[in-house]
Amino acid sequence: MAEVKILLAEDHLVVRNGIKLLLDSQQDFQVIGDVNNGREVLDLLDNGLAVDVIITDIGMQEVDGLQLIREVSERYPHIKILVLTMLDCDQHVARAFEYGAKGYLIKNVGAEEMLFAIQHVMRGGRYLCEELSMGFIEKAIVRNNNQPVNLDPTELDLTSRELEVLELLGEGYTNLEISKKLFLSKRTVEGHRQNLIDKTKSKNTPALIKFAVQNGLIH
């Protein structure tokens, strides 16, 4: 791989110097500039600075990282952009990739992972740091475990009449209104409602309706 020319955009001098020291110690990397904000990056590019990779923070004055990503991607699409930030929320990650970033790292990332990420995006790939990747996976596992499974009414042994009552309960009808619609006594409707609560192991009627919606029994 030819020497990779890197431009840093980071408004914390100590952090910027630390990254520069790490990258300059690598045989294949050369930091050709380090600036405080996105405006300075754009000025350098507009003046003809040849850059392969921009490593940028998100939260900076004047032109922030997201705006920088968008403008560089539109005007200099050959330049790879790698985010290095403390901001780990899903919205920032998604927006950065949407605007054209090729990688996203959290600032506590290890040196080896940062170097790998730069090499990976230079080869045409995209990279999300391990911490964020595992965070997304853990959230997906939680969502999957909490995802209700649609039930076949036969599994609950619900009668057609109970399903009719359930549908009307879901539409907000009272026991008395349901009794009139189905030509049943109010006591019979109350019995069906209690059977539904018992069969679905719900605490009360609102919990019954929630269960029914989550499991596709009513819509």
Rank of each mutant, 00 (worst) to 15 (best):
residue 43 D to F: 14
residue 66 L to A: 05
residue 53 V to C: 12
residue 42 L to V: 07
residue 27 Q to L: 11
residue 75 R to T: 11
residue 45 L to W: 03
residue 33 G to L: 02
residue 34 D to M: 13
residue 76 Y to D: 01
residue 72 V to L: 12
residue 79 I to K: 05
residue 56 T to Y: 09
residue 49 L to N: 00
residue 47 N to L: 12
residue 54 I to T: 04
residue 96 A to H: 01
residue 47 N to W: 05
residue 99 Y to D: 01
residue 59 G to P: 05
residue 37 N to R: 06
residue 27 Q to N: 12
residue 39 R to M: 11
residue 82 L to Q: 07
residue 93 V to L: 14
residue 98 E to R: 13
residue 53 V to L: 11
residue 89 C to K: 15
residue 81 I to N: 08
residue 29 F to Q: 00
residue 79 I to N: 08
residue 71 E to P: 07
residue 27 Q to V: 14
residue 20 K to N: 14
residue 30 Q to K: 14
residue 96 A to F: 10
residue 49 L to G: 00
residue 93 V to P: 09
residue 54 I to L: 12
residue 76 Y to M: 03
residue 33 G to W: 04
residue 19 I to Y: 09
residue 27 Q to M: 09
residue 63 V to A: 03
residue 26 Q to H: 07
residue 52 D to L: 09
residue 32 I to V: 15
residue 45 L to V: 03
residue 34 D to Q: 11
residue 28 D to Q: 11
residue 19 I to M: 14
residue 23 L to W: 10
residue 75 R to D: 03
residue 34 D to E: 12
residue 51 V to E: 00
residue 99 Y to C: 04
residue 41 V to T: 05
residue 37 N to Q: 09
residue 53 V to T: 01
residue 84 L to N: 06
residue 94 A to Q: 13
residue 23 L to V: 01
residue 70 R to F: 09
residue 92 H to Y: 15
residue 34 D to W: 07
residue 92 H to C: 12
residue 85 T to W: 14
residue 80 K to P: 09
residue 23 L to D: 00
residue 87 L to N: 10
residue 60 M to C: 08
residue 31 V to H: 08
residue 79 I to Y: 05
residue 75 R to Q: 12
